[in-house]
Computed example of a mutant assay.
Amino acid sequence: MIISAAGLAIAATAVQSCNQDGDNNYYYYYPNAIVTVKPIENPDDSLTFYMQLDDSTTLVAENLKKSPFGDKEVRALTSIEETEATVPGYDKVVHVYAIDSILTKKTEPFTDDKTVDSLFGNDPVEMIGDWMTVVEDGYITLRVRVATGGYGTMHRLTLLTGVNPDDPYEVEFRHKREENGISGPYVLGDALVAFSLDSLPDTQGENVKLTLRWKSFDGNERTAQFDYCTRMSSPSKMKIESGATFLTNVK
């Protein structure tokens, strides 16, 4: 998805610059889109990857010949501007001012409570319903908020499938805080993570309810629903929160 300039203020983080001309207009380095960066199976000298903006819009970067992420397919935050150029077979050509990958993972199957608690934890988390929380192009991308403390504390983020035998489209978010022996004081931190939904049954073009559940800071279970259709978009309608910085120590 892409947002207008008015939405840039809530992006909250700058991304890696791709600008080579020394432009000091830092406004351009704040993200205005989330894309899927996709390597081309049989690349040529002029085009080795493209970006999927949403379920029907493909982008080519005029100023990047190679993907910054090699041959990996990843979700990414980017700052882009549409140009008037065209490339046959693709919808738009854009100038990429900055781009940085989002932690992109596969889902994990639910086994039993004891096992998943041990492997993936059950620490509280909150979901942030801004423009970065979205279901599109076969991924669910989430902006999450955790309590973090101590230098080097890692946060393992996991999405479980198969948590409801009666509903294959119900998934559960798990958070495991891995302390390094130094605890507190705890502060709030945000992170972005994307999960491929290719393990869910194909909806065959039908819209279903994708239910996301998680343990919140108050200890209660919360849920949010998305209108989900395989490889189609479903923007978030969750409440927007504020008041935290972004974390990089997530896995």
Rank of each mutant, 00 (worst) to 15 (best):
Asp218Thr: 09
Glu206Ile: 04
Pro68Ala: 05
Ile102Pro: 02
Leu188Pro: 00
Val146Leu: 04
Ser67Lys: 07
Gly205Ile: 01
Lys38Met: 07
Thr248Ala: 13
Ser118Pro: 04
Asp218Phe: 06
Asn220Pro: 03
Val250Ile: 14
Ser183Tyr: 12
Gly149Ser: 02
Asn180Asp: 10
Glu206Ser: 10
Val116Gln: 12
Ala85Arg: 12
Leu197Gln: 05
His155Val: 15
Leu192Ala: 01
Met51Lys: 06
Asp218Arg: 08
Met127Leu: 15
Met51Thr: 05
Ser79Pro: 05
Gly89Ala: 06
Asn24Glu: 14
Ser234Tyr: 01
Thr230Met: 01
Gly162Trp: 08
Leu47Lys: 11
Asn180Gln: 13
Asp218His: 03
His155Lys: 12
Thr86Pro: 02
Thr48Ile: 02
Gly129Ser: 03
Thr153Arg: 06
Glu170Leu: 09
Thr133Ala: 11
Tyr90Arg: 10
Ser199Thr: 13
Asp45Asn: 15
Pro109Cys: 00
Glu108Phe: 00
Glu170Ala: 14
Gly219His: 02
Tyr30Asp: 03
Ile99Asp: 06
Gly70Ile: 03
Gly138Ile: 03
Ala9Glu: 14
Lys72Glu: 13
Asn249Cys: 09
Lys72Arg: 11
Thr57Ser: 09
Gly138Met: 11
Thr13Tyr: 06
Ile102Leu: 06
Arg222Leu: 10
Val250Phe: 08
Thr158Lys: 02
Thr104Glu: 05
Tyr186Ser: 09
Glu41Arg: 15
Pro185Leu: 04
Asp91Asn: 15
Ser242Trp: 05
Asn180Val: 14
Ala191Glu: 11
Ala12Met: 11
Thr83Met: 01
Asp227Arg: 12
Thr230Leu: 09
Thr230Glu: 01
Val35Met: 03
Met1Trp: 05
Ala191Tyr: 04
Ser46Cys: 10
Gly181Ile: 11
Tyr97His: 09
Tyr29Ser: 08
Thr111Lys: 14
Ser79Trp: 05
Leu53Trp: 07
Ser234Trp: 03
Glu172Asn: 09
Lys176Ile: 06
Ala14Tyr: 10
Asp123Trp: 01
Met232Lys: 15
Tyr30Gln: 12
Val146Glu: 04
Gly219Lys: 01
Arg222Ala: 12
Tyr26Ala: 15
Asp167Tyr: 08
Asp130Ser: 03
Gly89Glu: 06
Glu81His: 07
Lys65Cys: 06
Thr141Tyr: 03
